[in-house]
Design a binder for these strands. Structure first.
Length: 423
RNA sequence: GGGCUUAGACCGAUUCCG
C-alpha cells in the first residue's frame, strides 16, 4: 500500500492525474479494504478536481467518509477551492460551514480560499468581514497570501484606496510582501490608471530585494505595451529572459495583444509563431486575442478564420470567444451569423452573461434592427439574466438612436432602481 | 516532534465619451 501511495503522490506532483487515478482506483477496489491514508484521499480528491471530474472527486470524498476517515483542513481547503472553481459556490460555502460545524478552526489557507470565493462572486463586503475577523483572531497566523488575496479582491472591485492602504498595513504588521503581493499591487496601480506609480513600485520591490517572477514581468510588459511603449515592453522581455524566466503563454498572449493595439498584425503573427516554436501551447485566450485584433482592424473574415482554427485545434470556445465573433459580425452587420453563433453557444449549454447579451444587442442595433435588439434582452431577462450597467447603457443607446429621449430617461431610472451604478 | 497532500498576482469580449 505505501508503495502505491508513494506512486500516487509522485504522479500527482507531476500533474499526471490519470496515472495516479488508475493506481488509486486499483487500491480502493481491493475486496478486503486496505488502509489508505487520509492524505491520499485528499490528494486524489484534488486530482479529480484538477481533471475537471467533479463527480469522481465527490465520490472519493464519500468513499473517504465511508472508511471512517475524518476530513481535515487539507480536505476542506481542497473541497472549497475545487467547488468554487467549478462554479458551485453555494456548495463551497456549505463545505466551509460544515467545517466550522465540526469545530475545526480555519487556518490561513482556508481563510484565503474562502475570501476568494466571496470575492469571485462579487461579495466584497463578506470577504472583507471574514478577513477582518480572522485578522483579529489571535490564533490565526496571517501571511502574505491572505493579505494578497484581499488586496486583489479590493483592487478588482475598484476599491483601490482600500487596497493600497491594506498593502501598507500588511507591511506595518511585519508581514513581508513577496513577489506575488508586489505583483498584485503593481497591477492594481496600473488598473487604477496610476501607471507611473506602478512602475515605481516595481523598482521599489527590487530595491527591497524581492526578485520579480514570471508573473511580475508579464504585468510590466503589459503596462508598457498598453502605453504603446514597445521599447520598454521589449526591454522587460529581455530582462525577464536574463533573469532566467522563460516566457509562457500569458507572455506571448500579452505581446500579441500589444501588437494588435498598435495595428501591427505582422508582428502579432510573428509572436504567434515564436510561441509555437518555443513549445507553448496556445489557449482559448490566445485564439481569442487573435480573433479580437483582426475584428478590431475590420478583418472580420480573418476573425472567423481564427475561430475555426481554434476549433480545429480542439479548443472549446467559451463565452468570451463567442462574444468576440458575435461582436465581429457588426463589421458587416451580419445579424444572421451573430444569431447563429448565439444559438450555438446557448445550445452548447454555455450560459450567456451580460457581456454577450450586450454584444448581440449591439449587432442588431448597428444593423438598425432596434426592436430585435430589445427582444434579445427581453428573452434573456425572462430566463433570469440580471442586466448590469453596460446592458442598460446599450439599451439607452438604442433609445438614443430611435430618438426616444423619454424612454432613454426611464431606462436610466430603472437602472438606478435596480441598484446599478451609472458609470 | 517533523515531513507529505490544499490557498493569492499577470493575457482575450460588450456600450458611451475622449
Amino acid at each position: 500500500v505505501s508503495d502505491a501511495e508513494k506512486k500516487i503522490q509522485g504522479f500527482c506532483k507531476r500533474r499526471q492525474y490519470n496515472e495516479a487515478a488508475s493506481i488509486f482506483e486499483g487500491l480502493v477496489h481491493v475486496k478486503a479494504p486496505l488502509r489508505i491514508k487520509l492524505e491520499i484521499f485528499n490528494t486524489m480528491i484534488n486530482a479529480y478536481g484538477k481533471m475537471g471530474n467533479l463527480v469522481m472527486a465527490k465520490k472519493t470524498f464519500d468513499r473517504m467518509l465511508n472508511r471512517g476517515l475524518k476530513p481535515d483542513l487539507f480536505t476542506y481547503a481542497i473541497l472549497i477551492n475545487m467547488l468554487s472553481k467549478a462554479g458551485e459556490v453555494r456548495e463551497a460555502i456549505d463545505a466551509y460551514e460544515s467545517m466550522r460545524g465540526e469545530g475545526i478552526a480555519a487556518d490561513a489557507v482556508i481563510c484565503s480560499t474562502v475570501i476568494k470565493v466571496y470575492g469571485s462572486v462579487g461579495d466584497v463586503d463578506k470577504a472583507q468581514a471574514i478577513f477582518q475577523e480572522k485578522r483579529q483572531d489571535k490564533n490565526m497566523r496571517m501571511n502574505a497570501v491572505v493579505y494578497g488575496t484581499m488586496i486583489d479582491i479590493l483592487g478588482k472591485a475598484g476599491r483601490y484606496s482600500e487596497a493600497f492602504a491594506l498593502f501598507d498595513e500588511m507591511e506595518e504588521e511585519g508581514i513581508e510582501a513577496d513577489a506575488i503581493a508586489f505583483s498584485t499591487i503593481i497591477d492594481a496601480l496600473y488598473k487604477a490608471g496610476k501607471h507611473d506609480e506602478a512602475v515605481d513600485w516595481y523598482a521599489h520591490m527590487k530595491g527591497k530585494g524581492v526578485a520579480p517572477n514570471l508573473g511580475t514581468y508579464n504585468i510590466l510588459i503589459n503596462i508598457h505595451g498598453m502605453r504603446s511603449d514597445l521599447e520598454k515592453a521589449r526591454a522587460m522581455l529581455a530582462d525577464m529572459q536574463s533573469a532566467n524566466c522563460k516566457p509562457n503563454t500569458v507572455t506571448f498572449n500579452t505581446l500579441i495583444k500589444i501588437y494588435g493595439e498598435v495595428g501591427d498584425i505582422y508582428n502579432a503573427r510573428c509572436v504567434w509563431k515564436d510561441m509555437i516554436a518555443s513549445g507553448c501551447s496556445p489557449t482559448v485566450v490566445s485564439f481569442s486575442t487573435m480573433m479580437n485584433l483582426h475584428s478590431k482592424l475590420g478583418m472580420h473574415e480573418q476573425a472567423l478564420a481564427w475561430f475555426a482554427e481554434m476549433e480545429r485545434a480542439g479548443i472549446l470556445p467559451d463565452v468570451t470567444s463567442y462574444t468576440i465573433v458575435i461582436a465581429s459580425c457588426s463589421n458587416i452587420s451580419d445579424v444572421h451569423l451573430a444569431q447563429k453563433f448565439w444559438d450555438r453557444m446557448t445550445g452548447e449549454g454555455c450560459r450567456p452573461n451580460c457581456i454577450v447579451v450586450a454584444a448581440l444587442m449591439n449587432v442588431y442595433r448597428r444593423a438598425g434592427q432596434h426592436a430585435e435588439a430589445l427582444e434579445v434582452l427581453a428573452r434573456c431577462i425572462e430566463s433570469g439574466l440580471e442586466p448590469d450597467t453596460h446592458v442598460y447603457n446599450t439599451v439607452m443607446s438604442i433609445h438614443k438612436d430611435m430618438l426616444q429621449p423619454e424612454k432613454l430617461l426611464s431606462v436610466f431610472e430603472e437602472l438606478r432602481q435596480r441598484g446599478c451604478r451609472p458609470d
